[in-house]
Design a protein around this nucleic acid. Structure first.
Length: 449
RNA sequence: GCCGCUAUCGUCCAGGGGACUAGGACGCCGCCCUCUCACGGCGGAAACCCGGGUUCGAAUCCCGGUAGCGGUACCA
C-alpha cells in the first residue's frame, strides 16, 4: 500500500513541541512505509500566518531533520477549488445558506435541549452551513483509539463558508486532503471532535475518508497546556537552549510512541523502523525537560569530538574550541552547558571571590599553590601525564589530600571550583599561561590577607 | 451546560485475564569510582483513581462514579 501522509501546521511562528511531535510521527509513518509525506500550511489566519512565521516553522522542521516529499501546499492558494466544491454541495442540497448567528444557535438549543444539534432553514443569503442528517451517527475510525461514535442528532449544522464566500477550516482541510490523495491523517487529539464534520463533508461529496489517528496532547509539569511558563514550549526555544535535534527527535518520539521499554536511545532511522501508529499511547503526556537533558547528554557524546566541536563552535560563535571540547565533553548535557564550564580557558579566570577565599584565601591554600607552582615550573614535557606527575608529587611530599592541592590550582587557573579535569586543563593552558595565572592568584592572596 | 477522549511509580513507557512479589528509563536517596563537576557501576524508596459486576482468578474485560483534558467560532 502506498501511504500518503500529511502534516498541517498553523504557522504562528513558533513550532510548538506538540506540533513537532505530530510532524515527527507523520514523518516516521511515511519513512517507515516508503510513503509520501506532504506538507500543508494552514495559512488563512492573516494575523498570525505571516510569511515570516511560515519561514520560522519551516526552519524548525528542517532543524529537526524532518523533510517533506511534497508541498508546502498553502490552504489560501486553494480558494478556487474550495469555491467549486462549495457550489457542488450547495447545488446538491448538501449545504444551504443561513443567516443564523451564534445567538440563534443558542436559542435553538434552549428550545430543543442542550444536546440537540442546530438545524437551520435554507435562505437566499448568508453563511453556508453543511446539512447534517437528523438521524444516524458519524463514526470516526481512529487507528489509535478505535471507534468513536458521534450521534448526528447532537451535531450542529457546521458553518463551512462565511457569507463572503471564504471557506472555513473544517471544509477546506477535507477538500485538500481529498485532492492530495491523503491516506493517513495524524494530528492532535484536539481535532477529534472536528473529525465528524470533515467526514460529513467528504460523505456529502461522495468521497472516501482517509485513515485518522489522533495523538494525545502534551502538557507541562503542572498538567496544564505546555507554555513558555514551563521553560520551553517551542522547538526554537529548545534549539536556543542548547539541545540537539537528534535528542529532541528521540525524546518527543518517546512521548507516546509505546515502544517496548527496554531501550530508549534511538537515532531517527531506528525510530522510523520501530514506529507503529497503532502502538501510540492514548494518554496525554507531560513534557519532562530532565529526561530530555539526559538523552541530550547521551546524544552529545555519541557525536564524537569533531562533530561536537563543530556544533559547539556554531552555538557559541567561537572558534578553536577543539581542545576544550576534548576535555569537557563528558561534563555537559547541553550545548549551553559548555561555555560556562570552559570560558576561563579563553577569557581568563572567572571572578568568583567566594571560590577564591574558600580554596586559596585563609587556610593552607597558598602554600600548596606555591609548591604546585614550583613543581609545574620544572615539568617537562608539559603534557597531561607530566602535569599529573608533578601535582601528585606535591600531594605526596606534603602528605595531604589530593583536593588540598588540586582545588587551589583549579581556582587559580579557572577562578571557579568546577572545571574539566585539572591535569587536562593545566596541560591545555600550557606552562606559561598556567604559571602566570598561579602567580596572579598568589599575588592576590598576598594583597588581601 | 452539552458532546467527546483519557486514567499503572513524581514523570515517560512496558505489562492487555493466571508467568505480578507489577518491569525499564528519567528524577530522587545511598554506596562505589574520583582532583571539582560530571560520566560510569551497584543498591534503594516509589504506582495499578474509587465502587460495583463478569470470572475459579481482574492492573488487565464490563458498568457507574470521580478526576484530568479536549471540543463546543461566519479561528486554524
Amino acid at each position: 500500500m502506498s501511504l500518503r501522509v500529511r502534516f498541517a501546521p498553523s504557522p504562528t511562528g513558533a513550532l510548538h513541541i506538540g506540533g513537532a511531535r505530530t510532524a515527527l510521527y507523520n514523518w516516521l509513518l511515511a519513512r517507515g512505509h516508503d510513503g509520501t509525506l506532504v506538507l500543508r500550511i494552514e495559512d488563512t489566519d492573516r494575523e498570525r500566518s505571516t510569511p515570516e512565521n511560515v519561514d520560522q516553522i519551516l526552519d524548525a522542521l528542517r532543524w529537526l531533520n524532518i523533510d517533506f516529499d511534497e508541498g508546502p501546499i498553502f490552504q489560501s492558494e486553494r480558494a478556487p477549488r474550495h469555491a467549486e466544491a462549495l457550489d457542488q454541495l450547495l447545488a446538491g442540497g448538501h449545504a444551504y445558506r443561513s443567516t443564523a448567528t451564534a445567538d440563534d444557535v443558542r436559542a435553538y438549543k434552549d428550545r430543543h435541549g442542550d444536546d440537540r444539534g442546530f438545524r437551520g432553514d435554507a435562505e437566499s443569503a448568508g453563511a453556508v452551513r453543511l446539512r447534517v442528517p437528523d438521524g444516524g451517527e458519524t463514526i470516526v475510525h481512529d487507528v489509535i483509539r478505535g471507534e468513536t461514535r458521534f450521534p448526528n442528532a447532537n451535531l450542529d449544522d457546521p458553518v463551512i463558508a462565511r457569507a463572503d464566500g471564504s471557506v472555513l477550516y473544517n471544509f477546506a482541510v477535507a477538500i485538500d486532503d481529498l485532492d492530495a490523495g491523503i491516506t493517513h491523517v495524524v494530528r492532535g487529539e484536539d481535532h477529534l471532535s472536528n473529525t465528524p464534520k470533515q467526514l460529513l463533508v467528504l460523505e456529502a461529496l461522495g468521497a472516501d475518508a482517509p485513515r485518522y489517528a489522533h495523538l494525545p496532547l502534551l502538557h507541562g509539569p503542572d498538567g496544564r497546556k505546555l507554555s513558555k511558563r514551563h521553560g520551553a514550549a517551542s522547538v526554537q526555544e529548545l534549539r536556543d537552549g542548547g539541545y540537539l535535534p537528534e535528542a529532541v527527535d528521540n525524546y518527543i518520539a518517546l512521548l507516546g510512541a509505546g515502544f517496548a521499554a527496554d531501550e530508549e536511545f534511538f537515532s531517527l532511522p531506528e525510530l522510523a523502523e520501530r514506529f507503529r501508529l497503532e502502538r501510540v499511547s492514548k494518554n496525554p503526556a507531560v513534557f519532562d525537560e530532565h529526561k530530555l537533558r539526559h538523552l541530550n547528554g547521551r546524544h552529545l557524546r555519541e557525536l564524537g569530538t569533531a562533530e561536537l566541536t563543530d556544533r559547539l563552535e556554531r552555538f557559541t560563535g567561537r572558534t578553536g574550541l577543539r581542545g576544550a571540547v576534548e576535555i569537557a565533553a563528558e561534563k555537559i548535557q547541553t550545548l549551553a552547558d559548555f561555555w560556562p564550564l570552559v570560558s576561563f580557558l579563553f577569557d581568563g579566570p572567572v571572578d568568583d571571590p567566594a571560590a577564591f577565599d574558600k580554596t586559596i584565601g585563609p587556610d593552607g591554600g597558598v602554600s600548596a599553590l606555591t609548591a604546585a607552582r614550583q613543581a609545574l615550573a620544572e615539568t617537562e614535557p608539559f603534557d597531561v601525564s607530566g602535569v599529573e606527575g608533578a601535582l601528585r608529587g606535591v600531594v605526596e611530599r606534603t602528605e595531604t589530600k589530593p583536593g588540598k592541592v588540586f582545588q587551589p590550582v583549579r581556582v587559580a587557573v579557572a577562578g571557579q571550583t568546577v572545571s574539566p579535569g585539572i591535569f587536562e586543563t593545566v596541560a591545555l593552558l600550557g606552562k606559561d599561561e598556567t604559571l602566570a595565572r598561579i602567580d596572579a592568584a598568589l599575588a592576590r592572596a598576598r594583597d588581601q590577607p
